[in-house]
C-alpha cells in the first residue's frame, strides 16, 4: 500500500473541497461548468491571488503579513496618479513594484534586526501604506491611458469557445508558476520552509536566517505590489480607500490552500486552489441569487476552522508517532 505522506493531506483536502464546490455548482446550474465561468473566476480573483501568493511565503516562514490590502490600494493609486501626470505605464508599474518590494524589505529588517513581532510590524505597515495612499491622492482616479484601454484587452488568449483568458488571469497563473519555482526549486525557498518549521534548528544547521527572513518580506511586498498592478488592470482605476480587509481573504486563501499557519508546511499551488475555492463560493452564491453574500464569509470561516482543526490533528498525530 502506498503510504500517503502526511504533508500532502491538507493539499489533498483542498483539492477535494475545490472539486466538491465546483461539482456542486455544475450539478445545480447548467451554465456553471462552462470554461467561461472558470475564466471569469480567474479574472475576478487575479489580484487577490497574486497577493495571496506573496502572503504564502510569509506564512510559510512562520510570520504573517497584514499589510496586503493597504499595499494593493497604495500601488493602485500610485500608478493611477503617475499615469495621470503623464508617466509611462511601464515605468509607473516598475516604480510601484520597487516601492512594494522596498516596503516589504523595511518590514523584514524591523522584524529581523529588532526582533519585533511580525504581527505588529506589518500592522504598522497596514496603517502606513493606507495613509500614504491618501497622501498621493485622496480620491479615486480613473485610468484612461491607451495602454489600459486598448493594448490590455488585446493581450488575451482564446482558450475555449466563448472563453477568453484575460491578461490579469495570465498574470495570476504566471505568479503561481514563478512562486512555485521559488518555493520548490531554490535554496532560498527551501530555507523559508526550514525557518518556518523550526527556526532554531535552521540556525544550528547553518542556514542564513536573517537574509532569508528579510528577503521573504521583500518578496511578499513585491507580490502584493504586483497584485496592486493587476488590480489596476482589472478596475481600470486606483482608489486609496479600496481593498480594506483584503489581507484576510489572502490569509484565508493560504490556509484553505493547505498551508500551516504556524509555518513550514504548504504548497504554492495550494494557494491557487484556495483562491479558487473562495472565488467559487462567491460565484455559487451569485448564481443562486436567493442566497446572500454573507454566506460567503460564514462558509469561509467554517472552511478555515475545518482546515485548522485538520492540521492540528495531523501535527498531533505526527508527535505521537515519535
Amino acid at each position: 500500500m502506498i503510504r500517503l505522506n502526511p504533508k500532502y493531506i491538507p493539499l489533498l483536502a483542498t483539492a477535494v473541497v475545490l472539486v466538491a464546490v465546483f461539482g456542486t455548482g455544475a450539478a445545480l446550474y447548467p451554465n456553471f461548468g462552462t470554461p467561461r465561468v472558470f475564466v471569469n473566476l480567474l479574472n475576478d480573483n487575479a489580484f487577490v491571488g497574486v497577493a495571496a501568493v506573496g502572503e504564502s511565503f510569509v506564512i510559510l516562514s512562520g510570520g504573517i503579513d497584514l499589510s496586503v490590502g493597504s499595499m494593493v490600494a497604495f500601488v493602485g493609486i500610485l500608478i493611477a496618479k503617475l499615469l495621470q501626470v503623464g508617466c509611462d505605464p511601464f515605468l509607473a508599474m516598475g516604480i510601484a513594484l520597487c516601492a512594494g518590494t522596498f516596503a516589504g524589505a523595511v518590514m523584514g529588517c524591523l522584524i529581523h534586526f529588532f526582533e519585533m513581532p511580525p504581527f505588529l510590524v506589518t500592522l504598522a505597515g497596514l496603517f502606513c501604506l493606507r495613509g500614504l495612499g491618501f497622501v498621493i491622492y485622496p480620491e479615486s482616479i480613473g485610468i484612461d491611458h491607451p495602454f489600459y484601454g486598448e493594448v490590455l484587452p488585446q493581450l488575451s488568449i482564446l482558450v475555449a469557445p466563448k472563453a477568453v483568458l484575460p491578461f490579469t488571469a495570465m498574470c495570476f497563473l504566471a505568479s503561481v508558476l514563478v512562486a512555485t519555482f521559488i518555493a520548490s526549486f531554490t535554496r532560498f525557498g527551501r530555507n523559508i520552509y526550514a525557518i518556518g518549521s523550526n527556526e532554531n534548528s535552521a540556525r544550528l544547521m547553518g542556514l542564513p536566517i536573517g537574509q532569508t527572513k528579510i528577503l521573504t518580506y521583500a518578496l511578499a511586498g513585491f507580490f502584493s505590489a504586483a497584485g496592486g498592478v493587476v488590480a489596476t488592470f482589472y478596475m481600470q482605476s486606483g482608489n486609496p480607500a479600496s481593498f480594506v480587509g483584503l489581507e484576510l481573504d489572502a490569509i484565508a486563501s493560504v490556509v484553505i490552500g493547505g498551508t500551516l499557519l504556524t509555518g513550514g508546511v504548504g504548497f504554492i499551488p495550494g494557494t491557487l486552489m484556495g483562491v479558487l475555492i473562495l472565488g467559487l463560493i462567491q460565484t455559487l452564491i451569485n448564481f443562486n441569487g436567493t442566497l446572500n453574500s454573507w454566506w460567503t464569509k460564514i462558509v469561509i470561516g467554517v472552511l478555515l476552522l475545518i482546515f485548522i482543526v485538520l492540521q492540528k490533528l495531523i501535527s498531533r498525530r505526527a508527535v505521537t508517532q515519535l
Binding site: L248, A252, N292, W294, K297, I300, K312
Partner: peptide, 25 residues
C-alpha cells in the same frame, strides 16, 4: 490548543457574515 491568532481568525472572518445573517444584510 490552537494558536490564538489562528483560532480567533476563524470568528474574525465568519463573525461579520453571522452578523449580516442576523440583520439579513
Amino acid at each position: 490548543g490552537i494558536q490564538p491568532i489562528v483560532a480567533t481568525l476563524v470568528l474574525m472572518v465568519a463573525g461579520r457574515g453571522i452578523a449580516q445573517l442576523i440583520t439579513e444584510g
